[in-house]
Design a protein around this nucleic acid. Structure first.
Lengths: 147, 147
DNA sequence: TCTGGATGTTATTTTTATTATAACAGCATA
DNA sequence: TATGCTGTTATAATAAAAATAACATCCAGA
């Protein structure tokens, strides 16, 4: 398959909204920045809305963050976009008649859960505000400069 | 795409070897347990060999761990199999003419690196021995029972 | 009140990473 | 030196994601 870049793109969308408060950003306009198509952007926004991270009005370019950027963690976005998709994947097609295969996969699950938890703990400590702050540094802007 | 199960399958192979010391395990025999084809198993073993985790003799079913199970971490296997493939993927196709898109992705890289490090730290603390021990528990076997 | 630009959603096609499979040269033991 | 298996490469099939298309719906403004 392709690698999923939905998390990155969703953060992109949220940051874009945060950086242009009040602007009438259409899905088309955002799609230009992400270099994709408007329908994909709307799909991402739909998931973000369902997770309570974004508010919008049907038919009008009025999407806005539903919370402060400091109150939206990377884990919130991950959950909104990827649900409970794990970062490591077990092989669920091993031979059921081979006890070794079955139980090795069972054992692996415990350890994969640990890795998942470690990754999620870190993600929960990173907020959209952090990302925006770093963005401003990278872009060479003062903290309060409007884009 | 499909989700990669190579890490799981590689651990499966290593555990299988550890659980059957001295047995003449052909790639065909291992493939039965993983329920896949022998060539795929040999590909995994090739990567493990190049990483110094497994020793084998060409033409003969004599593969064996190159280290004690306690000296092989999940991160070792991940590196052997997936190289430096990250667990989260950036969108590298954003619009280069849009400074926002470019710099958001730059900012994201820093944070994705943090998440990667958290996951890898955890993986480095999990050894094949741990997985085998848990396997034995799951299988309801005493610690020293031969499979 | 009706028109139009945009959204929200679903369905289909295209792309791409992964796994499956095939093929075969080369090795080392019997 | 014949044989069974490995190590490797190349190709096909599978599956997840992104791209795209299509359309009903909303509502602000003319």
């Amino acid at each position: 398959m392709k690698y999923s870049t939905k998390l990155s793109d969703a953060v992109h969308v949220l940051a874009f909204l945060a950086l242009h408060p009040g602007a009438a950003l259409t899905s088309e306009r955002i799609a230009e920045s992400v270099q994709t198509n408007p329908a994909y952007i709307r799909q991402l926004m739909s998931a973000l809305r369902k997770a309570g991270l974004l508010a919008s009005v049907k038919g009008h370019p009025r999407a806005a963050l539903a919370r402060e950027p400091g109150g939206i963690s990377l884990l919130d976005v991950y959950r909104a976009i990827e649900g409970d998709k794990p970062i490591l994947h077990q092989d669920t097609h091993t031979n059921p008649d081979c006890g070794v295969g079955v139980n090795i996969q069972l054992a692996l699950r415990d350890y994969y859960d640990e890795v998942q938890r470690a990754a999620e703990d870190r993600m929960s400590a990173i907020t959209l505000q952090d990302i925006i702050d770093t963005y401003r540094q990278k872009a060479g802007l003062d903290h309060d400069t409007e884009v």
